[in-house]
């Protein structure tokens, strides 16, 4: 299989991760496109026979961090993603929106770890290598991300109950 075909095959995975990472579809696809372009430019740095998917996620991480840095230069508050478009939520849609929002409120570096481990099902070691951080940092970010997410989701549930009363 050619490099191009392998890249094409991985697009859905990259898109899913990007969507969870940056929130809206257009920005997520921009991130994927930039990642693919950068991957081609840096392909000589990829060692054959290793996991192309993990390498691509590293590329995406770098592109994402650069983008964040650039946006921070103009807007110091641009750490969290903007409020997602309001749709009329019903049933499961309510959960979807709440969870998306809660994920969007996590600090970017915690969000990345959480998504690589849960959504991408990377091992802790793979996640550490992908993000170029020690495995202990993976564990502590994962723990903090989960706890924040849980607090946000249960906090919301509590708030709703109060309204009902």
């Amino acid at each position: 299989m050619s490099d191009a075909e392998r890249l094409v095959e991985l697009i859905p995975r990259l898109r899913r991760y990007a969507r969870a990472l940056v929130g809206d579809r257009a920005s997520a696809d921009d991130l994927v496109q930039d990642t693919l372009e950068r991957a081609w430019a840096k392909l000589h740095l990829y060692s054959r026979g290793t996991d192309l998917r993990a390498w691509l996620f590293t590329v995406m991480h770098n592109v994402h961090v650069n983008k964040l840095r650039a946006s921070r230069a103009t807007d110091p508050l641009e750490d969290e993603m903007p409020e997602l478009a309001q749709r009329a939520p019903q049933g499961d849609a309510l959960l979807v929106r709440d969870l998306e929002r809660a994920i969007g409120r996590l600090p970017s570096e915690q969000r990345e770890v959480l998504l690589l481990v849960t959504l991408e099902e990377m091992s802790y070691d793979e996640a550490a290598r992908t993000l170029d951080i020690p495995i202990g940092t993976v564990m502590s970010r994962l723990s903090r991300a989960r706890e924040k997410l849980r607090a946000m989701m249960t906090g919301q549930a509590a708030a709703k109950l109060k309204v009902v009363k």
Partner: peptide
């Protein structure tokens, strides 16, 4: 997201080089 059709621009980006 995994089942969404891949936008053309991304497929082109993947095949570019």
């Amino acid at each position: 997201v995994l089942d969404e059709p891949v936008p053309q621009r991304l497929e082109r980006a993947a095949r570019r080089r």
